[in-house]
Design a binder for these strands. Structure first.
Lengths: 211, 211
DNA sequence: GGCTAAATCCCTAATTTTAGGGAGTGTACT
DNA sequence: AGTACACTCCCTAAAATTAGGGATTTAGCC
């Protein structure tokens, strides 16, 4: 049996969800709360395996509650359930440590599926949310290089050293070349990247993921 | 009806999946292929809405095929189905533009659910995969600040200017303070961040997401 | 062979940054 | 009333970076 508690400010929603969960196989519904002000004590008292958490609640938001609970009970699974599907909320929820994110419009059996998924260590994301997460993920990692910049092997090597915060002298040592050669390379790098200083070059290198 | 094609090198798997999909409601199964060498021409010919793609295939991997197909047909939905659940494969698949990732052990009806999810613009991730994605996501974005560093408002402002590649003089102008004050602030910043140069400070600022 | 690009080296001089030091103002908290 | 801290400013001098210029060697390509 999976012990579940619910945080949800909307009375109707809270009562109907409670009823549904209480009558679901494999779920032991331990309690429902209209706000998350005493979330920690509730968790301590009811020892849930999975928490269903609304985002929009008076006093303490579901995001804040998630952060607090995860700090003290990192193994409790938290399933966000909300009507919000904007990037920011999704982003915050994930960063807070949520184990799943389902939108409220889903069929009630999806709640049970999601609870079972997160209980065994998986995550459950509604398709719309999953799409958002993947999009954010790609945006983060896929290299966008509109202006294709060609740095030579040596130049990349030296740029990498600069990113590490090394001085010209240290770079010369590390690459086993003369100080003056480092100067030359860096001059060329600046020209190729259209920058005029080390910090600028470093920022550009990082954002273009050249190194 | 959702037009679906399948890339899968394992004969048994290919045939049983084909059978199952061909008999599923709402799905028009258009074809199955043992490798992805002519993926583009197959897509052109069969005009699928959704492609089921294995990762491990001879000649051309499912990841490579995904990249190629997405380049030409960005609107075709690609659903990765594989036995691999290691971080690297998941990561690559997502970066390649996959719209979903399901592991082969799932029940056949999950295939149909996933196909329907991606067809309407959502994404579908198996719980284990979703958990991995969320973990990677958190790892990327959650600020790990073991050494809690407090920069004052002004210091953050100046650090931001440095990240933009501005010189001391430009910063002084921008913040409407004297050059010497900029020096003082930067000295303090270096002390707080335990660095000795502008590039280092910039890198640290970015990786600690202080700015 | 001639050409090009990468990589190496050197010089000078201007400019910028960094490392010391000290010092005054205002605000907020105790 | 006193203290702490953020913010401001100044000075000097050493160190590092940037901007010019030019030069050689090696390797690959036509």
């Amino acid at each position: 049996m999976i012990r579940v508690i619910l945080f949800e400010d909307n009375k109707n929603m809270r009562e109907s969800l409670s009823l549904y969960l209480a009558s679901s196989d494999g779920i032991w519904f331990a309690g429902a709360f209209p706000d998350a002000r005493n979330a920690i004590t509730s968790v301590k008292k009811f020892k849930p395996d999975v928490i269903l958490m609304d985002i929009q609640m008076p006093q303490v938001s579901g995001i804040e509650a998630t952060i607090e609970i995860k700090k003290v009970y990192p193994n409790v699974k938290i399933l966000i359930q909300t009507i919000y599907e904007d990037d920011d909320k999704v982003f915050q929820a994930i960063c807070a440590g949520a184990n799943g994110y389902i939108i409220k419009s889903t069929k009630p059996e999806n709640y049970v599926n999601a609870i079972k998924d997160v209980f065994v260590g998986g995550s459950h994301l509604s398709p719309i949310i999953a799409a958002k997460v993947l999009a954010m993920f790609q945006h983060q990692f896929v290299r966008i290089q509109p202006t294709y910049i060609e740095l030579t092997q040596r130049e990349k090597e030296i740029l990498t050293c600069m990113v590490k915060g090394m001085s010209y002298k240290m770079i010369a040592d590390a690459c086993d070349i003369k100080f003056s050669t480092v100067c030359t390379h860096i001059k060329n790098i600046y020209e190729k990247l259209h920058v005029n200083s080390a910090p600028e070059a470093v920022v550009k290198a990082l954002e273009m993921k050249l190194v």
